[in-house]
Design a protein around this nucleic acid. Structure first.
Lengths: 347, 347
DNA sequence: CTGAAAGCGCTTACAG
DNA sequence: CTGAAAGCGCTTACAG
């Protein structure tokens, strides 16, 4: 800026008090007696000068930044994950604002070193980190955690106690398959959202299996194909399912993007959805509403994940000992037309 | 963190040098002669201690934060704007990283005071601001600008010299209408993306008009309806157009969201797209690919807008005197099926 | 009730 | 080549 910024010294001079008093008044320090007149003089002076305390100085002395960061890994599933970014970001920033924190957004591109985010913690840019899409073999992460640096994962790191927030993939998959079962389907295929190296993929498959078994059906590996985040993978996987001697009458596709590809494959094959084959997706991305027929799916609460992760992190930062540090959020079944149910379910 | 962070004093002690030397070595200050042995000792000590300089202290002395902020106004068009957020954010953070800057993300919710972002500038949280979706009547904005605080608008503030980056709405609309003209349409309607209070809306309407007039057609207000960001507004607007004694054979809808509503209205009316009525949208949101028929549209370069805004801002911060401080980015015509063109255009 | 002083952790003239 | 000292702009014991 052109004119030099006013400092607390300038305010003190104008108000005719010491810098101590300026600080005391402006920070509204409790249990300190300052005459209303003095207080008012300080306030007026600060306003006249358009004074804002320098946040770096303040951070230096307090040792707190009142900032958290969202570290956003852009992996091979970047396009897919982008669908959730606005909701997640809104949730996390809302939580941050609510507790008086700022939010630093730090994407990690594939060509960044994996531990590019470490400086945010060690250099005291932030008081804590939300890590989204972490790689489970990241040693820097566990090191930070062991050093007591506040951390929350968006996702899960099985076998650790690192605090995390995720969607309940198992129950979500159960909801999806249960819905199909309730519509009378017995031969239900599945296409995963991703290779099984992804934990969400394993969990959704697990839910599928549990739902079948709870209904007294046996799990048939022949009916399971593997998607890989995008439409094309869904198209191919569906083609394999259609090639079966007895194709399924319904399929649970654990990702809307993949489901859209599967849908296309069915339609291209001259079959109808839901009459010949019913589909339930997962995620409820925006596009799910717009395809024909609109996709029945399992909604992932992006805003809720963001809010919960942000709040949990801040509570950890402020030593507020949260009871649960590994949180799973519920999904919601969104019935549209691709499953053949009437609104409100039923056969 | 549990154990106290190491400071430059600790590094100095371990390396057997002064803090000055530590700073000189770690910052790679040029034109200063330090023996390779000393240098190495410092580097080793820093590594041994896992030392990261405290960024607040550094900022305090340098007066620079190496941080920019994206201020994101969530207005009535929040849902619409969210479609561009991931791309914009990626562009802006890429530019930031490229120049060694961090990115603070600051949404302004409708219930926030309008000037909630001012503290980011005045309190020295950041060296500069990208403001997205600014209200033209915001006095704090012009005040900051006059005080010389680095600012770039995503959007435009007509009648000012505030640096800005936006898409060329006029030319985008011309592309759309020109495409329809080239397909032989003469009676082309328009539905705006938003009320005319929005500058993008005025500009797109202007482009529509220019394209018609360049083709020797007269502008007919009867053929123009007003959208309001969402599907429902597009549905209603289209209904009005269909009610005309002679409905248009093609319509340019200056927003994909609105266009999707218009599409629905046409289909519900028992007409076909593109055979009875052709449509061209604007924005190229993800959903445009998924509707039936897929929507021909004008692509807005979200990543490019972000990158350009970020880079421009940083050049202003670093006093790099950019030649142009008000940038318009080109759009791109994306031909899909809703216009009836074959791939590559032509009648 | 209010002020002088120390200190947060760095960087940067300035000496030697 | 390297170190002692000042200072960035705050806050916070500690005196009075």
């Amino acid at each position: 800026m052109n004119r030099p910024r006013p400092t607390s010294r300038d305010v003190a001079r104008l108000a005719g008090v010491s810098r101590t008093t300026v600080s005391l008044v402006l920070n509204n320090v409790p249990d300190v007696k300052i005459s209303p007149e003095t207080r008012q003089r300080v306030l007026d002076a600060a306003r006249r000068l358009n004074y804002y305390p320098d946040v770096s100085a303040r951070r230096l002395v307090s040792g707190k930044t009142h900032t958290i960061a969202l570290v956003w890994h852009r992996g091979p599933d970047a396009t897919y994950r982008d669908a959730f970014l606005p909701g997640l970001l809104q949730g996390i920033t809302r939580a941050a604002r609510h507790y008086g924190y700022h939010l630093l957004f730090r994407p990690i591109d594939p060509d960044d070193p994996d531990e590019a985010y470490v400086e945010l913690a060690r250099g005291r840019h932030t008081d804590g980190l939300v890590l989204s899409g972490p790689r489970s073999d990241d040693p820097s992460l566990l090191e930070l955690y062991r050093d007591g640096f506040p951390l929350v994962l968006h996702g899960q790191l099985p076998g650790t106690e690192v605090p995390s927030v995720d969607v309940d993939n198992v129950r979500g998959a159960i909801q999806a398959v249960h819905h199909l079962l309730s519509l009378g389907h017995r031969r239900i295929g599945m296409i995963t959202n991703a290779p099984l190296a992804y934990i969400s993929s394993r969990q959704r498959l697990d839910g599928y299996r549990q739902a079948l078994e709870a209904a007294g059906l046996t799990y048939d590996p022949e009916l399971v194909q593997f998607g890989n985040f995008d439409e094309e993978s869904g198209r191919k996987a569906m083609l394999s399912l259609l090639d079966l001697p007895t194709p399924p009458t319904a399929v649970f596709v654990a990702s809307d993007m993949v489901a859209i590809g599967a849908l296309r494959a069915i339609l291209d094959h001259g079959l109808r959805v839901p009459e010949d084959i019913a589909i339930v997706g997962f995620d409820d991305i925006a596009a799910a509403r717009f395809v024909s027929p609109p996709l029945t799916t399992i909604r992932v609460p992006a805003f809720g994940l963001g809010w919960t992760a942000g709040e949990l992190l801040i509570r950890i930062i402020e030593q507020d000992q949260p009871e649960h540090t590994q949180v799973l959020l519920e999904t919601e079944l969104i019935v549209r037309r691709s499953c053949g149910a009437k609104e409100g379910g039923g056969k």
